[in-house]
């Protein structure tokens, strides 16, 4: 059954006609052409598809579009863009945190949710927040450093505007 939905994605309001059961990931990638959120398992097991819905981390591969009427969604594209990177993206670049990079969209969103609720996380708190996200390349130590670095930048106010 097609449904008419209104949702805000990265600050823009979108009207979408789709079956209520369509996964948010498909809405983002195929209806809206925002390919940054990634398919890894479709099973809520890897975090490659992670986005924020009203600031909370959500596995977009499994969250049905029908439940998102009126909600606000943030994806990696909304975090920052080339030339206007979010401090988290900049920190990942500075630490060269990534090998293949496929996990990074999800990592960035999980880290964003963490820093929004806890601007000064300990290493253990970062580990706990990112544990649902798989990185098969073993970029973990760099990702941990990058999140800590971004937290410091944001605390110092250098990341104003985000």
């Amino acid at each position: 059954m097609s449904k008419h939905l209104t949702m805000t994605v990265n600050g823009h309001v979108h009207e979408i006609d789709t079956a209520g059961t369509t996964p948010l990931l498909d809405v983002l990638r195929n209806h809206l052409g925002q390919k940054g959120s990634r398919y890894g398992c479709g099973l809520e097991q890897c975090g490659a598809c992670m986005v924020l819905v009203d600031g909370e981390t959500v596995y977009s591969c499994s969250r049905e579009a029908g439940s998102l009427q009126g909600r606000s969604i943030l994806t990696v594209e909304g975090l920052g863009a080339p030339g206007a990177l979010h401090p988290l993206q900049q920190a990942f670049l500075d630490e060269q945190a990534g090998q293949c990079g496929y996990c990074l969209s999800g990592m960035l969103m999980a880290a964003k949710a963490l820093l929004d609720r806890n601007p000064s996380p300990t290493r253990a708190e970062i580990v706990e927040a990112l544990d649902p996200n798989v990185c098969r390349c073993g970029s973990h130590p760099r990702i941990l450093r990058a999140v800590a670095r971004a937290a410091a930048v944001l605390r110092s106010g250098a990341g104003d505007g985000h």
Binding site: K35, R38, T75, E77, Q89, G101, L108
Partner: peptide, 22 residues
């Protein structure tokens, strides 16, 4: 020298993969 990876910036901003080709 530690030249930064040429492909990483794209992958941190939501592009760069075969899966994204339309």
């Amino acid at each position: 020298r530690d030249i930064p990876r040429l492909d990483l910036a794209a992958k941190l901003t939501g592009s760069g993969f075969i899966q994204d080709i339309d």
